[in-house]
């Protein structure tokens, strides 16, 4: 464990807690894409298949349980909660996210480190996570104004993967044969997708203006 990875995990944890806090306290999911949340639930479900078979550490298991629990409860809140689901704007959240699931699955079948079920599922979860934010970014473009919590959620989500890239660089230089091209490229693509959001997020933060994304 290095500082970059710990910071990345904490940032990722903060992003899901900010979202849960927002939904649970103000009982609203305005501006949140259910599609992105469903994709993230699928990412964790396919990435943590070995949660009970492959014990790494107490920390690792706890964090996996938190990510699984939070992502599925966020989906439940938006879909099932009697008050929260009313603030879900399904007319705006129209990204056909199942269309990106299939290419990720096909790609995972073609490009992976080992052709076993768990390894293909794990690779699929990496590819899917790289594009899971797309429905949310599309929704933000549409709804233009972003409330603070949603902006912070997306920012923290992008920042966690950027910190993971620093972690991979650190591990590459400090550990022998630590080479995971698939993870690195998927992580880089994921972070680049946030790039323009980061730009507008910092602009609004610098000018102390409301965060607005161009049409």
């Amino acid at each position: 464990m290095n500082i970059f990875r710990l910071a990345g995990d904490m940032t990722h944890l903060a992003s899901v807690l900010v979202l849960l806090l927002k939904i649970h306290t103000i009982k609203s999911c305005a501006g949140i894409s259910l599609k992105t949340q469903e994709l993230y639930a699928l990412v964790f479900a396919t990435r943590y298949l070995d949660i009970f078979t492959n014990y790494i550490s107490f920390y690792n298991t706890i964090m996996k349980l938190i990510f699984l629990g939070s992502s599925f409860s966020i989906v439940w809140y938006i879909k099932r909660h009697k008050i929260v689901h009313r603030s879900y704007d399904k007319d705006q959240d129209t990204f056909r996210h199942w269309f990106i699931v299939l290419p990720c699955l096909v790609l995972a079948l073609l490009i992976n480190e080992r052709f076993t079920f768990k390894e293909v599922m794990w690779t699929f979860s990496l590819y899917l996570e790289a594009v899971a934010i797309l429905p949310q970014l599309v929704l933000l473009q549409r709804t233009r104004n972003i409330d603070n919590l949603t902006g912070q959620y997306v920012f923290l989500l992008g920042a966690y993967r950027a910190l993971y890239i620093l972690n991979w660089i650190y591990r590459y230089f400090t550990e022998d044969h630590y080479i995971h091209w698939i993870t690195w490229i998927a992580g880089l693509v994921q972070t680049l997708l946030y790039a323009d959001f980061f730009y507008y997020y910092f602009q609004s933060w610098k000018n102390n203006a409301k965060l607005e994304l161009p049409a």
């Binding site: 990875r5 995990d9 990722h12 070995d50 492959n54 790494i56 550490s57 690792n60 964090m63 996996k64 990510f67 080992r114 794990w122 993971y164 972690n167 630590y178 995971h180 993870t183």
Partner: peptide, 10 residues
């Protein structure tokens, strides 16, 4: 290290 131990990241 064994392959699955390489999956020590979240």
């Amino acid at each position: 290290p064994p392959f699955n131990l390489m999956k020590d990241e979240l």
